[in-house]
């Protein structure tokens, strides 16, 4: 029971990494940490980490980034729902196949956010908005192995 703090700690660190100041040139490559961490925990422990937690984390991320509330939570919830439906399949894929699927999920996440932003504030499209997809995809294997090691060591279920 008290070992669940590891999940929340990893989410906290993901939130910190989402807002940590970076030089302007590097900042557009910032991966979607929160999405990665939530998708991993959702695949590994679907009962513990699911839509409710995704919604709450999305609202917190909105507050941190200064977006209108509900933006990130809507995008996160859609993605977590998809990964929740297929969690068993996702677990059994090799890491490379998971990377491809995660690329699609991140693309969907970023696309939903862009659509909502466009609806609210009329931003126009720039390709550099989608660099985070690339960095997120390449970050997935690392995160998967680290979080899996932590999960096994702490014996989380």
């Amino acid at each position: 029971m008290n070992k669940r703090y590891v999940i929340y700690l990893s989410i906290f660190i993901a939130l910190v990494l989402e807002v940590i100041p970076m030089p302007l040139d590097v900042a557009m490559y910032r991966p979607d940490w929160l999405l990665l961490v939530l998708v991993y925990w959702n695949i590994a422990l679907p009962q513990r980490v699911n839509l409710g937690l995704a919604f709450a984390c999305g609202v917190i991320l909105d507050i941190l980034l200064g977006h209108s509330l509900g933006l990130n939570s809507l995008a996160l919830v859609v993605v977590i729902y998809i990964s929740s439906l297929h969690y068993q399949r996702l677990r059994n894929y090799s890491v490379w196949q998971q990377m491809v699927l995660l690329g699609l999920l991140t693309a969907l996440y970023n696309l939903i956010i862009f659509w909502l932003q466009h609806w609210l504030t009329n931003v126009y499209f720039q390709f550099s908005y989608f660099w985070p997809i690339v960095t997120t995809v390449f970050l997935w294997p690392w995160l998967f192995w680290i979080l899996r090691k932590i999960r096994r060591q702490m014996g989380l279920s």
Partner: peptide, 21 residues
């Protein structure tokens, strides 16, 4: 799962409309 999704999506859209607009 589906009804959870529905609840959460409705909440998100509600927040978006009330806060964004």
């Amino acid at each position: 799962l589906e009804s959870r999704l529905f609840i959460v999506v409705v909440l998100s859209l509600g927040l978006l409309i009330s806060d964004g607009l």
